[in-house]
Nucleic acid binder design. Sequence first.
DNA 1: TCATTAGTTCATAATTTACAGAACTAAAAT
DNA 2: ATTTTAGTTCTGTAAATTATGAACTAATGA
Lengths: 153, 153
Amino acid sequence: MILSEQQLSLIEEFGVYQENNGFQPAVARVMGLLLVSDRAELTFDEISEALSISKSATSNALNMLLNTGNIEYTTFPGDRKRYFRIKSSNWREFFLKRMEDLSYLNGLLKRALDVRKRDNPIYDAKLNDFISFMDYMQNRMPSLIEEWEKSRK
Amino acid sequence: MILSEQQLSLIEEFGVYQENNGFQPAVARVMGLLLVSDRAELTFDEISEALSISKSATSNALNMLLNTGNIEYTTFPGDRKRYFRIKSSNWREFFLKRMEDLSYLNGLLKRALDVRKRDNPIYDAKLNDFISFMDYMQNRMPSLIEEWEKSRK
DNA sequence: TCATTAGTTCATAATTTACAGAACTAAAAT
DNA sequence: ATTTTAGTTCTGTAAATTATGAACTAATGA
């Protein structure tokens, strides 16, 4: 497989981004490759070779991404290879996961307000502000998604 | 300083959450402590003792958090100690940073669409969907914040 | 002037992580 | 029957991370 300079550097940049999201370097590169490659579906060996990573690292990365639902694969009759691709539904899920993560944080902050007996209630007010803001965002999210869907018809 | 069981376990839970956000364990615990402690402002030694971490780890954590703008401190005349607290403006900034992070990702995805010459344009459509969704969210964000501010008067 | 306080800095130790390489397996092909 | 294919699993290790403890500093206090 031939990758342009642009593709190679985008794989790296996307890789670093996903490392910051908690993915292992090699795992993040595999996602990057599947994102930018000209063919949407790549085999085990193509991935291993394109990224110069060992078979064990490739195996680990692909199973990781399969387990987390970030990729999937298809097969073709008379061909034992699996063809891996990014799960197309994944993008929307990605956004929703981010929102869920924020409401988990919001839950922690609510509990913090609950357990601490603050000397100075000014700090409580600031935190309450944020909690109410997050609650508001969460409530508005479904209608925002709906509006977007309408807007693009 | 006395911390209840609830406070201690919330520090840990918040700590793990912030570790996933890229903070070092000890740094994450310091944030947790400042979040749940009954007094909003704590000294170097109080933090070190409450979390049973060494002075060097405490120094490192506090400077880390000062540099990233997550905490700040005040002093009092005739008292050499610094009193550390969570930066109150920080919560809103936290949310905005998350949004910025998503638009950075969106930029990467736009570049991916640009550089890859996809065999099957179905995959392009899915990605375009997400990009347009993210663009929509970004555009709506300022007015959403405004609406929230109005709604709470 | 000497001791104490409030930290900082440095060398180093203890984990943790992330990957390579080799040996292995199960199914299919010859 | 045995070879090839398409991976998986195991062991070892290099590198990175994270924290400790001891030595240090700069300011204040006695």
